[in-house]
Design a protein around this nucleic acid. Structure first.
Lengths: 344, 344
DNA sequence: CCCATTAACGGCACCGGTTTCGGTTCTGAA
DNA sequence: TTCAGAACCGAAACCGGTGCCGTTAATGGG
């Protein structure tokens, strides 16, 4: 029952093996009666073309490798599912790899991917060395960084307009009358984290303010809680906190409410970044900057498939605007431009 | 720079192409100096063995297909990551597919996997037709259902001991003095959902109680909210709710607290099922039955690799005990056996 | 009715490895 | 010294398809 080959189908249908191949290859010419005979035989035998053999000489595997750091931040499961669905639509299979930035060597993972003859690679939220991206370039392996950039703006990457987003957060909080605005920052080893922080600082400076305090909580929930408690374990405390992503903002909210017994937004305003689905849950009701996962995924896939088909020249970094989604976790300024539409 | 083959390495090292192959195949005999020469040449040329070609004649791809329904319930991202890591340790690559139970045809997805010559398939939380599992059996394709069972107990599957879990929840709530205990049930089209509900009902009956009400909320957050509101839109209302999984329990908590203004556990007790990481967050502090993802993953991978290597006979369904994790969302009975250890 | 064109399809080489087979060299015991 | 056995390694077949080439049959315009 198992392991039916095109040859056996050919024998049964009374045709040559290449004809069987043609029947299963779109855009080829085969007479209708042979098509019928072959399909019949194939169905009876339970034949499925062997993708591996097909890939071997076409040189294309129709497989994309996605490398992820972790799924604890709910932004990534959402993104992974969308990426996978989008790629499936285009006829690609998806191979996933986890490379937490510490123990696993990303280079090793990528070697595994290349050995598997993937047609392209999406590096989602992994901190890649410049060496690695350089090597991928040398090897002409199409790749896109997703939600991570590198300083070199010609490296293909899709991110939010993080600097602008940080700036918007700062302006929003300043306009709301806050004066002691702290930042629970994303990992400063990532461009995302640095850009959001830089935008935040720039936005405050425009208003004649300085950051109250900045902690690099490295995107980790526990760090964010610890750093929040530190912030409030002092004579002077912040009246607003801008968080490097929603995942940390949830932790900050928890520390503020459950541990410190503070009210949000009456005592402290909180703003996040990402707008994951959970941000809209009433327990959190988080004011945040939306990273439009849909659009990011679309751009990412379009960019990658473009590079694979060589139809489009690599575009370098694409930044997608982050809209501020106003909910209840931060005091709203009296005069603030109307909000854009809700979740797409 | 790209596309280095074993043949080119062989030429440069002054050996035959099969010798290069042998150098990269563990358990073969090659003289030390040729190993050195070949490895040297390979490094210089940046050679990586082509996994596709390798798989083609060995018949094994060292790839496992994982089919998922959705990642919104945080149990699945956690499980996916663990499964992937565990399989990586064993030398397998992981291919993911999403098949929401409605639009996508699971059969189609599985066909794609088989065409890709995967060595085995994990069907996580997808509702499979009996046809499909029967077909996979006929084709001798190793597969395991993860967190889903089928009535036939010989079908390889790893689940929690759901009936027992539901029974424990009922006993715990009854012992806590609740008398009007409702159930926001998991999808009755899944064995998981049915077993948990059946165990719950059995547990209540033992105590001389009947379920206050049961709603099939099909594992969806919005349904759970809607059904909770329905429960309380009546003259008599429940004093406890057992939820088919944590994902729905979070929704129920939100409806109770934010929409209905009720206190948990003073007005209503809530018990979930899964013990995802979020259940321990202080905002939720959810009493719940733990599905030990670690052990489930281990069993699942062991079972699958056993079937692939034909070392172990297929074991049929494996049920893993669910411990009750007592937190703050449900009133605790005065006399209740001590709690087992915390998260492993 | 003839010849040029095209559709249909089999033969063969090939994708990049692995595996079998057999020959050569090396080792060590008799 | 002789010879069995093992270690090593190259030639060739093979894994299951695709792509090119050439042959044959069908089509159609003049």
């Amino acid at each position: 029952m198992a392991k039916v080959t095109a040859y056996e189908v050919a024998k049964r249908a009374g045709v040559s093996q290449p004809t069987v191949s043609r029947v299963f290859t779109p855009g080829t010419q085969v007479s209708p009666d042979k098509v019928a005979r072959v399909k019949d035989a194939a169905r009876q035998l339970g034949y499925l073309p062997n993708t591996l053999a097909r890939s071997l000489n076409s040189g294309r595997s129709y497989t994309i490798g996605i490398v992820l750091a972790y799924l604890k931040n709910p932004f990534y499961p959402e993104a992974l599912q969308r990426l996978s669905e989008k790629l499936s639509e285009q006829g690609y299979h998806v191979m996933v790899f986890f490379a937490d930035n510490l123990t696993t060597d990303v280079d090793e993972v990528v070697e595994g991917l290349m050995a598997h003859q993937v047609d392209g690679i999406i590096l989602a939220s992994v901190s890649t060395s410049n060496d690695l991206t350089q090597r991928l370039r040398d090897l002409k392996m199409p790749f896109v960084l997703f939600n991570r950039g590198q300083d070199d703006p010609t490296i293909p990457a899709v991110t939010a307009a993080n600097f602008e987003g940080g700036r918007t957060a700062a302006r929003f909080l300043a306009a709301g009358g806050h004066t002691r605005i702290a930042h629970i920052a994303g990992w400063q080893g990532s461009l995302n984290g640095r850009d959001r922080q830089a935008g935040f600082v720039a936005g405050l400076n425009e208003q004649g303010l300085e950051p109250f305090a900045i902690h690099d909580s490295r995107y980790h929930r526990n760090n964010a809680i610890r750093d929040t408690l530190t912030l409030f374990d002092q004579p002077e405390t912040p009246d607003a906190i801008f968080c490097g992503n929603d995942h940390m903002a949830f932790a900050v909210l928890e520390a503020l409410r459950s541990t410190l017994g503070l009210r949000v937004p009456e005592d402290v305003s909180v703003v996040g970044y990402d707008d994951v689905a959970m941000a809209a849950w009433k327990v959190f009701d988080l004011t945040t900057l939306r990273q439009p996962a849909n659009r990011m995924v679309e751009e990412c896939v379009a960019m990658l498939t473009g590079m694979i088909d060589k139809t489009t020249a690599p575009k370098g970094r694409i930044e997608i605007e982050s809209d501020l989604i106003i909910r209840g976790s931060a005091r709203v300024p009296d005069h603030w431009p109307a909000q854009k539409g809700d979740r797409p």
